[in-house]
């Protein structure tokens, strides 16, 4: 399931719902991305996330399909927010249910690594002084090179 939403989500509640939905899975692994209060040693007050909804859903679906082709996965949920987010708020939740831990652990990392370079979201950092569009990191591109996958 893919949810792209403006409203905040409760990490514990979403995981609990996902766990109950997949009660026969032996493992659930998750990743939670949050808003930091600094970037490149500069203090920020909030972030703004813009997205291309149609393409984001399409790209995330492709990443999910690819993960399911690689590992024996029971279920996947991705929640990603857009709009203005304050420091400490949740940005993204990825959770994977599988029979054994290896599949869920590896696929969560696979999904967040590909999301960082294929899902059409853009972050703007907001501080008292100015606003700056965040630049993609070379290290994020390097992280997907280990996968024998291309989209």
């Amino acid at each position: 399931m893919i949810l792209i939403q403006k409203k905040p989500f409760n990490y514990a509640k979403e995981l609990d719902i996902f766990s109950k939905k997949n009660k026969l899975s032996g493992a659930i692994s998750s990743f939670l991305g949050k808003v930091r209060n600094f970037s490149n040693l500069q203090k920020i007050d909030a972030i703004f996330i813009e997205h291309y909804e149609k393409m984001t859903k399409f790209q995330l679906s492709r990443i999910i399909e690819e993960a399911k082709a690689k590992w024996d996965i029971d279920d996947i949920i991705i929640i990603h927010r857009f709009g203005r987010l304050k420091i400490g708020e949740n940005i993204v939740l990825i959770a994977v249910a599988s029979k054994h831990r290896e599949e869920s652990l590896k696929s969560v990392e696979f999904i967040i690594n590909w999301l960082k370079i294929k899902a059409t979201f853009w972050k703007k950092e907001i501080s008292n002084d100015n606003t700056t569009w965040v630049k993609q990191k070379e290290s994020d591109i390097d992280k997907v090179k280990k996968y024998n996958t291309s989209f």
Binding site: H80, I112, I117, T120, K123, Q136
Partner: peptide, 10 residues
């Protein structure tokens, strides 16, 4: 067609 900078979600 869409034009945009490299993505920065997550």
């Amino acid at each position: 067609i869409a034009f945009f900078p490299p993505v920065t979600g997550g």
